[in-house]
Write a protein that binds this DNA or RNA. Structure first.
Lengths: 192, 192
DNA sequence: ATCGAGTGAGAACGACCGTTCTCACCGAGC
DNA sequence: GCTCGGTGAGAACGGTCGTTCTCACTCGAT
């Protein structure tokens, strides 16, 4: 056994993440993942019994990393309104990453949503988690209708993600932040 | 010649549109399009010399139909602000269509954007056209900075499209409309 | 009536993909 | 030292896909 199971699994997931995200799930063959991870095909299949299972693990990992990065940015601020705006600063740093190519869940949903119920389900869960986080931030900021504000902020965020991905510019994050400021001024009670 | 070239082309495009949009571009084989359109494979390939060419024609047609539907809704209103809000009413009627599955350009971009420069380019052009239309509407409504308002409205629209596609609900269109009203109140001068 | 260009139906081809199988080989336990 | 379960490398398999080819046939022009 050249390398232990845990590191092999990590290498495979790392390679799958990079390739799936960059080229899309369907355009990447198992052989490309094998080559990139340096793991034998046999091992790959005993770690993940099928490509579908690997896709699921990829999405699961993306969800976790995304949540962690978001929380990191939000928790750097203490003022409740600043914490909401930190979401859009997170988006901006995400968009400026060299390999940014939009939301993995939106992309996978577009590819496989109608064909793989599991992918559709995972995309829904990911977005529901984001909505939940935004609702809590809106609540903490004293919004009279936190879910409503959260729903508005979601639209700005998702719109910024896809617009930035297609245009190749990070500007949509700034626009979203601007619009969020305006919406918060309209929705939140005057600052105490 | 059983049917003339023009109707054959229309039938192929109709079938390709339905299948590509429903299942995604890569999941649909040329044979499925042949079966659905009732056109022979030979004829199909002399109408569209490759699958890429058919994809391009599909996206071109989507762009045209989408613009037409949007214009139809917008032109039903005369008041400049109502014309902006008509965009979101258009989105709502779109989202409630039985076969709604998000934006064909966002979906295709997620699938092939990194692999096919042509698809990426067409998605950019489509979105640029939408931005142009929104900018003109914002201008007509007397926005002091029409591009800025247009950029905000784009985010709401794109966000509503993807959120609605993934959640399967048409509600995001209503949320986007609500947020648009708030943004217009903040950005536009008081009504004369 | 005959020719020939173009047709429909589908077989065929070559490439690729997900998955499994082969087999020589290694290292731990007797 | 000698098994033997598990490994790596990659060949092999069955299926699909985009594209081309075959071939009997039709139909308009001569």
């Amino acid at each position: 056994m050249a390398i232990d199971t845990a590191t092999a699994q990590r290498q495979v997931l790392e390679a799958a993440d990079a390739l799936f995200y960059e080229r899309g799930v369907q355009s990447v063959g198992m052989d490309a993942i094998r080559t990139a991870s340096g793991v034998s095909l046999k091992r790959l299949y005993q770690l993940f019994p099928s490509k579908d299972a690997l896709i699921e693990a990829y999405l699961h990992q993306r969800d976790q990393q995304w949540k962690d990065m978001l929380a990191e940015h939000v928790d750097a601020a203490t003022d409740p309104r600043e914490r909401i705006l930190a979401v859009f600063e997170f988006l901006h740093t995400w968009f400026t990453q060299r390999d940014f190519r939009g939301c993995a869940f939106i992309n996978s949903f577009g590819e496989l949503g109608a064909v793989s119920p599991r992918v559709a389900e995972l995309a829904q869960q990911h977005k529901a988690g984001f909505r939940q986080a935004l609702t809590e931030l809106a609540e903490a900021a004293g919004a009279p209708d936190p879910q409503r504000l959260a729903d508005h902020l979601i639209l700005l965020s998702e719109g910024a993600i896809t617009t930035s991905a297609i245009s190749g510019s990070a500007e949509p994050a700034r626009h979203a932040r601007e619009a969020a400021v305006l919406l918060m001024q309209a929705s939140l009670p005057a600052k105490s």
